[in-house]
């Protein structure tokens, strides 16, 4: 109440202007900190967690196929992020292919390789070197890696039949058995 009276008594033109100016300044300052907080939250969020909905995406493979979310239906999907220049990706490349050979005829499992920041030439060379036959494609404008909040290659996400993340591997898998285990777990759900 008191303050109101004060305003009425000595409200002058420059004062009103100053009030307005400082109001704008405060709003800008607070807005800036809100934006900073949002950004920090975003960077500290980390990768997608088990149980979250897995972002669905369309993959245009290097061999010209288009794999849409409809193709995911009723399957366990393994999404592997890799790059041809990534050393630890190479460790698991053959193993992933081996596991793919094991499951590919069952029709229950879909393997999707997403090459991050790769050139087509290098990616194709890598796939040839490691004999990779499952669907692999580039990540246009990093939309897929951003959706999965990927931090570094290699990262792998196993998605169950309901489209939820069943398990993740940040870094390479420890072996064929490890990959089979996480896929079996997802199939069992």
């Amino acid at each position: 109440m008191n303050e109101k009276v004060d305003i009425k008594v000595d409200e002058t033109e420059p004062k009103r202007k100053m009030r307005f100016g400082s109001l704008v300044a405060w709003i800008l300052l607070i807005a800036f900190f809100v934006v900073l907080a949002m950004q920090m939250f975003k960077t500290q969020q980390g990768v997608l967690q088990v149980g979250e909905d897995a972002p669905q995406f369309t993959l245009e493979t290097y061999d010209g196929r288009v794999i849409t979310p409809e193709d995911w239906e009723g399957k366990v999907v393994l999404v592997n992020f890799w790059a041809s220049f990534c050393i630890s990706c190479k460790d698991e490349a053959r193993e992933l292919e081996e596991v793919w050979q094991f499951y590919k005829d069952s029709g229950d499992v879909l393997f999707l390789g997403v090459a991050w920041s790769d050139t087509k030439k290098a990616a194709l060379g890598y796939m040839e070197d490691y004999g990779i036959t499952y669907a692999n494609g580039p990540d246009a404008k990093h939309q897929i890696t951003d959706a999965y909040r990927m931090e570094a290659v290699p990262e792998t996400y196993i998605i169950d039949r309901n489209g939820k993340i069943s398990s993740t591997a940040i870094g390479p898998f420890s072996g064929v058995d490890h990959i089979k285990l996480v896929i079996e777990n997802a199939l069992d759900n």
Binding site: F33, L36, A37, Q39, M40, T43, Q44
Partner: peptide, 21 residues
């Protein structure tokens, strides 16, 4: 130091961010 910007110089991410902000 909070990892809010990425750079060759930046320190690895840490928990001090919110508190620092």
């Amino acid at each position: 130091r909070s990892g809010a910007v990425t750079s060759v110089h930046s320190f690895s991410q840490s928990q001090i961010g919110p508190y620092f902000l």
